[in-house]
Nucleic acid binder design. Structure first.
Lengths: 366, 366
DNA sequence: TGGCCTATTGACACCGTTGTCATTTTGAAG
DNA sequence: CTTCAAAATGACAACGGTGTCAATAGGCCA
C-alpha cells in the first residue's frame, strides 16, 4: 500500500518551533533596537541605508512577519481593508474579491468582506460601525454603493478612507477618489458592432436605475445611433432591471412589435440571457433572425447557445488597482507624505461571439 | 484616459478616533476588577451570579465590545475563522461565504476568506502559516480540500481546528468533524426521474476525480439503473471534468453513437451547459429529442433555454451550519467542556425544469 | 468561636508592536 | 578642532485585554 509513503507532514512539534519570530528576535540578531526594526518595517524615513539593509536581511532570514493584532492594538493605524458590495452577480463579486485580495496580500493587509443591502437607510451607520469595530484602514466600495452621493459624503465626514469603483466616462473630479470604468464607451462599441452588421432597428433593455452604469450604457447606445444617423425609436427602448426576467419580458415586448428589431442589446448578460430565452421560446433563430448582445463577459455568455457577444470588464484588475491605490494612499498619508494620486480609468473590451450576425444572413439549413 | 487631474487627498492622521469603551471603563463602573469583567465576557465559571449581572448591566449600558486585537494578542484564542476554497464556481462560493459569514457575525467572529490551489503541494504549509499569521481560531474547508486525507491529517496533527464540508452518503466516522452532503441520493433521484420519463439509454458525464462528489454522483446513477433493471452500458459513461468544454466534448461523443442516448445526465450544471450547447449546435431539440439534467441549481440552470432539471444544494445553509458547529466546538473546547458534536447530513433536492421530458414526446411544431 | 475548604475576586505581569521623547552620532560650517 | 543642527537610534511606556497565582470571602462543621 501507499500508506507508508507519507508526504511531508508538519508535526505539532515543528509547529511549536515555527512560532513566529518577533520584532525582538530580529532586533537582537541585527544588533539594533526594536524601534529601529519597527522603522524599517514601516518604511519610515531617517533610517540609515546601511542599517535598513542589515535589518532587512534578518527579517528575510527569519521570514519575520509583524503581528497584525499587536500592530493594530498599539497604533491608530490598522492593516485590513473592507470590501463593501451588494450585487447579486456572483461572478462579478468573485473577481472583485480576487483583485482586492491580491492587492491586500502583496501589501500585508487583511481583508474583511462585507456584503450588504445597498438600499438600507442604516447602511452608513453600519459601515462606520464596521470600520471601527473591525479596525479597518479603509473601504473599497463597489457599485451601487460607490455611486450614492449621500453615503460617500457621510463616509468622508466620518474620515473613513475609501476608494470607489464607479461607472463613468471620465474622472468625475468630485473630490473623492475613484477608479472609473467607461461603460458608455463599451456600449458604444457594442452598438456600433451591431450597426456595422447592418442592423438599423436595435432594441435596448435598460438595467437598474440605482447603478450609474445603466444610464452610461444607454448613452453609449444612443450616441452610436446618432453618430450613424439612425433615428431613435422610443418603442425600442425598454426600462427594467439587471435580471433575467426583465430581459425575458422586455424581449417579448420588443418581439411582439409590428416592426420588430433585428437586434437587441441587453444592458448585461443576465438580461441578454432572458432575451435569448424569449427568442428560443418564440422559435426565433439567434443570430440569424435576431442578434443579441449583452454586457459583462459572464460565464453564462460563454456557455449559452449561441455564446453571447458582450463587453469584457477587467473586474479583477480594476479591483486590484482600486485596492492598491487605497493602500498606497493610506501609507503615504500615514507617513505624512502628500496624497495626490490620480484617478484612473478602464475601458471594457468588445467580445464578439455567436449571438450576433449580419442582418441579411439567411437561416442555415440544419 | 490616464492623464486625469489630481485627485483629492484623504487625510487620516488627523482622525480623532472615536474611542469606544474599554474593559477598564466597565470595571470601574461596575466596581469590580478588570479581570472579573474579563471572566464575564468569556463566560467563565466561578463568577457570582450577582456580580455577573452587575457587570453585564454595565457592558450593555456602554455597549462595550472587547477589542479582538487585544484579545488575540494576549491569549492563545482568537476570534476569526478562515474559509478555504478552490472552486471555479462563483455561485457556489458566494453562497458558501454567505453562510459562513452569517454564522461568524452572529457569534462575533471575523472571517478570512482564502481562495487557494487545491493541487498545490505546499497547501498544507500555506494553511498552517495562514492560521498562525492571521491568528485564526479554525478553518472551514470546502471540497475538494476537505476531501484530501493527507491535508486533513496534517491539519489535525498541527492541532488546527477545522470543519469539513464533504460529499458523502453518510457520516464517514473517520474521527474528523464534517458536515456531509448526500450527492449520491440526489443523483439517484435525478436518474430515477429520467427513467420514469421513459428513458432507458441515459448518458452520464463524470466530474473531476479530485472531488468526492464525482464518484458519489456516479454511484447514484449506477444504483438507480440497477434498481430499475437497466443494464449499464459503458459506452454511455464518459469521464471528464466539471467544465463546459468537457460537457460539450462528452456530449458530442455520446450523440455520435449509433444508438445514441435519449437523455444525458451531466455531473454539474456547467457540464450540462456544454451538453445543451452540443445539442443546439447539432440541431437536436431539447428536451424533445434529448433530455438533459445537471446538478447544482446554478443561476445558469434557470437562465438557459430550456431551463435545466438539476439538484438544489442548500449551500448557504450547509455552510452556515458548518461554521456554527465549528464555533460552538471551539467555545466548548475553550471552556473545557467536552466536544462531542454529531456530524450532520444534508440532501440536495430534485428540481425539475424544462430540459427533461418524456422520451416519447413528439417535437412540437413551431 | 475557630478551623478548614472552596468559591470568588483581584494584583500584576505580559502579549508584540508603536508613539514619545531623550540621547547619540554624523556631517558641514566656522 | 569646535560647534551645532540634523539625522539616526534607543529606552520606555502604553495599547486592551488575559494568564497566573495569591488573597479574600463565605459556608460548613466540630
Amino acid at each position: 500500500m501507499r500508506e507508508a509513503q507519507a508526504a511531508p507532514t508538519i508535526t505539532t512539534h515543528e509547529v511549536q518551533r515555527l512560532r513566529s519570530a518577533t520584532i525582538k528576535d530580529v532586533a537582537e540578531r541585527a544588533g539594533v533596537s526594536m524601534k529601529t526594526v519597527s522603522r524599517v518595517i514601516n518604511n519610515e524615513p531617517s533610517v540609515h541605508e546601511r542599517t535598513r539593509a542589515k535589518v532587512q536581511r534578518e527579517i528575510d532570514a527569519l521570514s519575520y512577519q509583524p503581528d497584525p493584532s499587536a500592530r493594530s492594538l498599539r497604533s491608530t493605524r490598522s492593516y485590513a481593508l473592507g470590501l463593501v458590495y451588494d450585487n447579486p452577480n456572483a461572478h462579478y463579486i468573485i473577481n472583485l474579491q480576487r483583485g482586492v485580495l491580491a492587492a491586500c496580500r502583496s501589501s500585508g493587509f487583511g481583508l474583511q468582506i462585507h456584503p450588504c443591502d445597498s438600499a438600507s437607510p442604516k447602511l452608513a451607520d453600519e459601515l462606520c460601525t464596521l470600520v471601527r469595530r473591525s479596525r479597518l484602514a479603509g473601504l473599497v466600495l463597489a457599485p451601487p454603493m460607490s455611486e450614492q452621493p449621500q453615503l460617500i459624503r457621510t463616509l468622508s465626514e466620518a474620515k473613513i478612507p475609501f476608494m470607489r469603483i464607479i461607472s463613468a466616462r471620465q474622472d468625475p473630479q468630485d473630490g473623492y477618489p475613484c477608479v472609473y470604468v467607461d461603460d458608455r464607451d463599451a456600449a458604444y462599441a457594442i452598438t456600433e458592432h451591431l450597426i456595422q452588421l447592418g442592423h438599423q432597428r436595435i432594441g435596448f433593455l435598460w438595467g437598474g436605475r440605482e447603478h450609474r452604469s445603466s444610464p452610461e450604457r444607454y448613452q453609449g447606445y444612443e450616441d452610436a445611433l446618432k453618430d450613424y444617423g439612425i433615428a431613435l425609436d422610443r418603442k425600442l427602448i425598454v426600462p427594467g432591471d439587471f435580471t433575467f426576467d426583465d430581459g425575458f419580458r422586455g424581449a417579448r415586448k420588443l418581439l411582439a412589435l409590428k416592426d420588430r428589431p433585428s437586434a437587441i442589446f441587453g444592458s448585461n448578460d443576465e438580461i441578454a440571457a432572458g432575451v435569448l430565452a424569449a427568442a428560443h421560446s418564440d422559435g426565433i433563430h439567434v443570430p440569424y433572425e435576431l442578434s443579441i448582445a449583452g454586457f459583462e463577459d459572464s460565464p453564462f455568455s460563454k456557455q449559452s447557445w449561441p455564446a453571447l457577444t458582450t463587453a469584457r470588464q477587467a473586474t479583477e484588475e480594476i479591483a486590484r488597482h482600486a485596492a492598491q491605490r487605497l493602500i498606497t494612499d493610506l501609507q503615504r498619508d500615514a507617513n505624512g507624505e502628500p496624497v495626490n494620486s490620480t484617478n484612473e480609468g478602464f475601458r471594457p473590451e468588445l467580445v464578439v461571439r455567436g449571438s450576433t450576425a449580419p442582418r441579411t444572413a439567411a437561416v442555415p439549413r440544419r
